Simulated assay, not measured.
Amino acid sequence: MSIDAIIMGIAFICIHLFANDLLPSGRIQRLKWFSFSGGLAVSYVFVYVLPTLHKEQITVKKYSDYLTMESELYFVGLIGLLIFYGIQKVVRKAQKEGENKKARTLFWMQILFFGLYNALVSYTVISHEVLGIQAVFYGLAVGMHFTAVAHDLWREYEDIYNRVGRYVLAAGILMGWIFGVNVSLPPVTETIIFAFISGAMILNVLKYELPPDEEAHFPTFAIGVISYTSITMSLKFFFQW
């Protein structure tokens, strides 16, 4: 395991443990932070996740004679999006209907699924051996994504999240990390995992990280999109990522 993966793993764990303590306390500063973070996340989806998914779709056909279409991995990504959307929809519906006991039970299920999500993301980082400057930009985008997810869960049930939830999410990172170091899965399986979490990540970014109109600071959002995209595309051009 490279030093880059170790640093990213520790950073991701710390984010879940201390995310809400690191966010700015002022409302305007917090809105700008989330707008900038949302800009980075959207840029990350379009300049890294989708192109990588396309490349993996081409690669995976080399390992199986049964994959004859050009969209199998996109279907897996769609399943990931559907599952995570369904879980979050059920939890929010129970909250709106005032079924507090049911909502809290469902929130535990949501925490467990996000723990699994974190484990799969962590495993993907290790298995893809992201190194050097690429690791910095990958880690920056994913780290801000984790911060937004942690804050969203914290806002729903602060007591559960602070008491247990954040440790479950951090444990997910650790489990994926350990699994990635000790287990080598077939390339097709690794690609399917990447496709599944890509769908879930696209949902979380576009539905939950983009700030609502009344809370968005568009100039800061635009700066996040343009700066991350420009730098990443330049590095792709020079270093052939």
Rank of each mutant, 00 (worst) to 15 (best):
E129T: 13
P24T: 05
G80Q: 00
F146E: 01
H145M: 08
K101N: 06
Y123P: 00
I15G: 02
N204P: 03
Q88E: 14
Y123M: 10
E209N: 04
Y138L: 14
P187V: 01
E156D: 13
I58C: 14
A94V: 06
R163I: 06
M109D: 07
I202G: 01
S43F: 11
L210E: 02
Y63S: 11
L140M: 12
M1L: 13
L185E: 00
V125K: 12
W108I: 13
E209Y: 02
L17C: 05
T105K: 06
L23D: 00
I202R: 05
F12N: 03
V183P: 02
H128W: 07
F237R: 12
K32I: 12
A171H: 13
L106W: 11
F113G: 11
L106M: 15
A119V: 07
F179K: 11
S122A: 13
K207D: 07
P24K: 08
L210A: 02
H54L: 11
I231R: 11
H217M: 10
Q88G: 09
W154R: 15
L131F: 13
V130R: 09
E129K: 10
E129Q: 11
T191V: 01
Q110K: 15
V183M: 14
E209L: 03
F237T: 09
I58T: 15
Y138N: 00
L131I: 14
A119Y: 02
Y138I: 07
G139V: 06
V42N: 02
Q57F: 06
V76A: 10
I193C: 04
G172N: 06
Y228V: 00
S43M: 11
I192Q: 04
H16K: 00
F146C: 03
V136F: 15
T147M: 14
D213Q: 14
F18V: 04
L116A: 12
I133G: 03
